[in-house]
Amino acid sequence: MVRTPLTPEERERGERLGRLLRAERGERSMVEVAAAAGLSAETLRKIETGRAPTPAFFTVAAIAAALGLSMDDLMARCALAPAA
């Protein structure tokens, strides 16, 4: 299967998601949050650094739950700002 290349906007959205999740993790260790979300620390690391810019919905939902974030809030904070 060949994946369609990501657009610059998709990459930027993935980077914003990663920065947001890293900021919300705060002082908690990556291993602790990943374990609470039921995934590997390497997967969380890739998402936080933008190396996995399009993680699966259920992966994001699990991380959000582990961090106490609502999906609505997460989506709103990761959305592109409307053009002026």
Rank of each mutant, 00 (worst) to 15 (best):
A66Y: 05
G50P: 05
E27V: 13
E12K: 02
R19E: 11
R13A: 13
E42V: 04
V60A: 00
I63Y: 01
E10P: 00
K46C: 11
R77V: 13
T43V: 14
P55F: 12
G38Q: 13
R11S: 01
I47T: 01
R22V: 06
A37K: 05
G50R: 05
A34K: 01
A52V: 12
T43P: 02
R28K: 09
S70D: 13
P82G: 11
L21W: 03
M75E: 09
P55Y: 11
A66N: 01
L17C: 03
L69C: 07
I63A: 12
E24Q: 15
T43Q: 14
D72C: 02
T54A: 15
A79Q: 14
L17P: 01
I47G: 03
M30G: 02
A81C: 09
A56Y: 06
L17Y: 00
V33P: 01
R77M: 10
A76Y: 08
E10I: 04
L67M: 12
A65Q: 06
A34H: 01
S70R: 04
L17N: 01
A65S: 07
R51G: 11
S40V: 11
E15M: 07
A81V: 13
A61M: 11
A81M: 11
R28Y: 02
C78F: 04
M71D: 08
F58N: 12
A34T: 07
S40W: 07
I47F: 00
M1W: 10
A61F: 14
P5R: 06
D73R: 14
P53Q: 05
R51F: 06
A36K: 03
R3M: 03
A76N: 09
E42A: 07
K46Y: 10
E24F: 03
T59S: 15
E9Y: 00
S70H: 06
A56D: 13
A81L: 14
G18W: 02
A66C: 10
M71Y: 07
A52R: 09
E32R: 07
G26V: 10
P5M: 09
V31H: 03
R77L: 13
C78Q: 07
G26T: 09
K46V: 00
R22L: 14
T43N: 10
G18D: 00
I47L: 02
E27F: 06
L67E: 07
L21R: 03
M30W: 01
M1A: 15
M71L: 15
M71P: 01
V60T: 08
M30K: 04
I47V: 15
R25Y: 08
I63P: 02
T43M: 13
L20G: 05
A23V: 04
R13C: 04
A35R: 00
A34L: 04
L20K: 06
M71I: 15
L39Y: 01
R25P: 03
S70P: 05
R16D: 08
R28V: 08
L20I: 10
A34I: 11
L17H: 00
A79G: 10
L67C: 05
L74C: 09
E24R: 15
A81W: 04
I63H: 08
S29G: 15
A35P: 02
R3A: 12
L44G: 12
A66L: 06
A41V: 11
F57I: 14
A79P: 05
L44M: 13
P5I: 08
P82H: 10
E9D: 03
A37H: 01
L80P: 08
E32I: 01
E24M: 11
A52Y: 02
L69T: 13
L74H: 07
R13Q: 12
E12T: 04
A35I: 00
